[in-house]
């Protein structure tokens, strides 16, 4: 645990000013938003000491809007706000559910969605939800602005498609329409605040007329260097009536999409079992909801 007394903190008054600083100091400065990950990492020597660009006061990046069927979430929006947002609860309940599990109240009040994305922990709880929502990430630099689908944003363990002069300013995704059912799951080793051993999200479209799944999205976290989509499992579900066989087969098929490792929270073998079993339990619960 080291002191950061020699670390300078620049606190710009606007996004444009922040982008200007990033432009000038690209690579030599780290962005701090809520600080819930970065401060500990720097104090514990997990990352090197550099000066900090404090964007916490940039309220222009705090918003949740529903526009033309799309939900737009400002990068600095904290998870407590996301969890409670009527827009998110209606348009993307799976994200609202995931948001509440990210940590204690103290963490939720401070941690931002952009921070969770950019910190790039494979166990980050918002990511599986954003994967099944197929969210777009909006990056700005002084000179440019671009949009990256979340699946393309991660190039490997903590490797991002993001330049040092860029800032993640917004996350957007299409509103989840009628007939969609979603559920987030998290396996932590304690009922209170705990980092996920495995987490994930399932989003299904149930076609009431054919009484079958017409679209399936499953994302899993903490079981590969990045969050993954379980495509094989998704394919098995599409067209199924969520009967036991389909559920069992789909949950087994997630194995083909994951490559977990051993760490202090669990063995790779256990993570494999949990991936299948959580998807199984989640699908069973969704099947029950459908039958009601």
């Amino acid at each position: 645990m080291r002191s950061l007394a020699d670390v300078d903190v620049l606190s710009p008054a606007s996004v444009d000013e922040a982008l200007e600083i990033l432009h000038q100091k690209a690579g030599g400065i780290k962005i701090v938003a809520g600080g819930t990950d970065l401060i500990v990492q720097m104090k514990h020597r997990i990352i090197g000491k550099t000066d900090l660009l404090n964007i916490y006061m940039l309220d222009e990046l705090r918003y949740i809007r529903l526009e033309n069927g799309s939900v737009r979430v400002g990068g600095l929006t904290d998870f407590a706000t996301i969890h409670k947002s009527p827009v998110v609860r209606t348009a993307a309940p799976v994200l609202a559910e995931a948001a509440s599990t990210i940590g204690s109240v103290q963490i939720l009040n401070k941690a931002s969605i952009a921070g969770n994305i950019v910190n790039a922990s494979p166990a980050a709880d918002s990511l599986p939800a954003l994967y099944v929502l197929e969210a777009d990430l909006h990056l700005r630099s002084k000179a440019s602005s671009r949009t990256v689908p979340i699946r393309d944003f991660y190039k490997g363990y903590k490797k991002l498609d993001m330049r040092p002069d860029e800032l993640l300013v917004e996350v957007s995704f299409k509103q989840v329409g009628d007939g969609y059912l979603g559920k987030f799951f998290k396996h932590g080793l304690r009922q209170g605040d705990a980092i996920a051993v495995v987490n994930g999200a399932v989003l299904l479209k149930w076609d009431a007329s054919s009484k079958a799944v017409s679209e399936a999205r499953i994302a899993l976290g903490a079981v590969a260097p990045t969050v993954v989509r379980a495509e094989k499992a998704e394919a098995i579900l599409v067209g199924s009536r969520l009967e036991e066989t389909a559920i069992v087969n789909a949950s087994r098929a997630v194995q083909e999409s994951i490559s977990p490792i051993d760490d202090v929270r669990g063995s790779a073998a256990y993570r494999r079992e949990m991936s299948t079993n959580y998807v199984y339990m989640t699908l069973r619960m969704l099947a029950e909801m459908v039958r009601k």
Binding site: M1, V9, G35, I39, L52, V105, I107, K110
Partner: peptide, 29 residues
């Protein structure tokens, strides 16, 4: 000092946060 125990909880603009994960620069104003 890592945001794991809550002993350092304070209210920042009325909301509970970890003072150990809040920079003094966050608190300005």
């Amino acid at each position: 000092s890592s945001g794991d125990c809550g002993a350092c909880t304070v209210l920042l603009d009325g909301r509970a946060v970890h003072s150990c994960l809040t920079l003094i620069s966050h608190v300005q104003g």
